[in-house]
């Protein structure tokens, strides 16, 4: 099995790693780059815990291969967090109790991060659609949706 040298940008930093073709991008991020914030809840594309942003679009880290990341710009939860403290989205999730065990949380943060990067005033329906592919076993989603609604309001107020 041939190893591939793959170079890409993750959270603003250029990285180059040697990967087996069969390694998923999530495994490469977690195992080789130490970015363990990207979680694996199913490894078959359904739970959304591994959601990251690839070239500005949300993607399942478990359904991309590491080799496919060549040249890509990748954002993970680590990169979506400020150096200190919490982002607007993260702060709202905390305030509205949008997390319990925290396992789905990085995926939720990234899905919402993408939503707000393309739409600063989403409706409740748009919020739901944005997280419809993210499973959370703990919260029942209500706190997450409320948090996102608050973010939308706060972004509006800022403008």
């Amino acid at each position: 099995m041939t190893l591939h040298q793959v170079s890409f940008t993750v959270n603003g930093k250029k990285v180059s790693v040697e990967v087996e073709p069969r390694q998923t991008l999530a495994d490469v991020l977690r195992g080789q780059l130490g970015l363990t914030g990207t979680h694996l809840g199913c490894e078959h594309g359904v739970c959304g815990a591994c959601t990251i942003i690839v070239n500005g679009e949300p993607a399942r880290g478990c359904l991309m291969l590491g080799v496919q990341a060549e040249g890509a710009e990748i954002l993970t939860v680590e990169g979506a967090s400020p150096d200190e403290g919490l982002s607007l989205i993260q702060e709202a999730l905390r305030e509205f109790h949008g997390l319990q065990c925290g396992f789905c949380t990085p995926g939720m943060v990234m899905a919402l991060h993408h939503l707000f990067s393309v739409n600063t005033s989403p409706t409740e329906e748009e919020i739901k659609e944005a997280i419809s592919g993210q499973l959370c076993r703990c919260t029942g989603y209500q706190g997450i949706v409320n948090a996102a609604k608050a973010v939308a309001q706060r972004l509006q107020a800022q403008q």
Partner: peptide
């Protein structure tokens, strides 16, 4: 068809 992240890819 699926959800935003699955449709994006």
């Amino acid at each position: 068809v699926g959800h935003p992240p699955t449709r994006a890819r």
